[in-house]
């Protein structure tokens, strides 16, 4: 019964057609009997939390990989935000260079958080502004079964969600900002809104960004498509690992 139900929901999810309110109302009686929201035993959860790196995210990449993905390139000195100084190795003829050893540390921490949230069935939202990389990010978000918002940010998606979506809506549990700047070089409004709503945020911060409002920051280049693809790949892998573990533990 459970399997059939799962297949049904799956087909529903995959259906390309637009579902309408009157045509496909899930029956309340059915949904209450469904046991999809089964819980992982709490002792197992505790064990997962206690482990420093349960999902082995540290072996997802090496500093060399980051280096090859051009993550160490920063902007020119003139646009440097003083708050980014601790993460910067130095300046090469006017161009700031990130310290990838530090970046790797922060990135591993962020990947660990992402994997844990995926493990707890959290909703993860990828955010980005800028047309060049938006399709890339959307594709990776889709591949790992999570969500993306790479378009114009209409105010109040988090802070006034009931009005925006016309109903009570579950907000994401984690926002991953692949870049934190707007196209007009001001900060993405969602950074502020997520902070207001107490949503955890992971943000790639370039040398001209302000990391103050982010929960987990990753200093690094956020402009090159190569770098963006690297981040997306890593986060996708971490999320998939978290989900795989969740599936495994649910079956026990």
């Amino acid at each position: 019964m459970l399997k059939i139900k799962n297949i049904l929901t799956l087909t529903e999810k995959c259906a390309p057609t637009i579902r309408l309110l009157s045509s496909a109302v899930p029956q309340p009686s059915e949904s209450t009997t469904q046991i999809e929201t089964a819980q992982i035993p709490s002792d197992l959860q505790q064990e997962v939390l206690k482990h420093p790196d349960y999902f082995q995210v540290h072996n997802l990449f090496t500093v060399k990989d980051l280096f090859d993905a051009r993550i160490h390139y920063g902007h020119k000195e003139g646009s440097l935000d003083p708050k980014m100084l601790p993460y910067i190795y130095g300046s090469r003829l006017g161009h700031t260079i990130f310290d990838l050893d530090k970046t790797a540390e922060y990135l591993r921490r962020a990947l660990n958080v992402a994997a844990h949230i995926a493990y707890r069935d959290g909703v993860i939202l990828f955010l980005l502004r800028g047309a060049q990389n938006s399709h890339l990010v959307e594709r990776y978000a889709k591949e790992c079964g999570e969500f993306a918002h790479t378009r114009f940010w209409r105010g109040g998606i988090f802070t006034n969600s009931e009005k925006q979506f016309g109903a009570v809506t579950r907000l994401p549990d984690l926002c991953i900002f692949v870049n934190t700047l707007n196209t007009v070089l001001t900060q993405h409004t969602a950074v502020r809104d997520a902070a207001k709503m107490g949503i955890a945020t992971i943000g790639i911060v370039d040398s001209n960004c302000n990391p103050n409002l982010l929960t987990y920051l990753v200093p690094g280049n956020d402009d090159s498509p190569v770098a963006v693809e690297m981040y997306c790949k890593l986060f996708k892998e971490a999320i998939l690992r978290g989900k795989a573990k969740r599936k495994e533990h649910l079956e026990i």
Partner: peptide, 14 residues
């Protein structure tokens, strides 16, 4: 720690 076993440190890479 950076996984220095498999990868060079950033400084020498740079």
């Amino acid at each position: 720690k950076p996984t220095s076993e498999e990868s060079e440190p950033f400084v020498s890479l740079l």
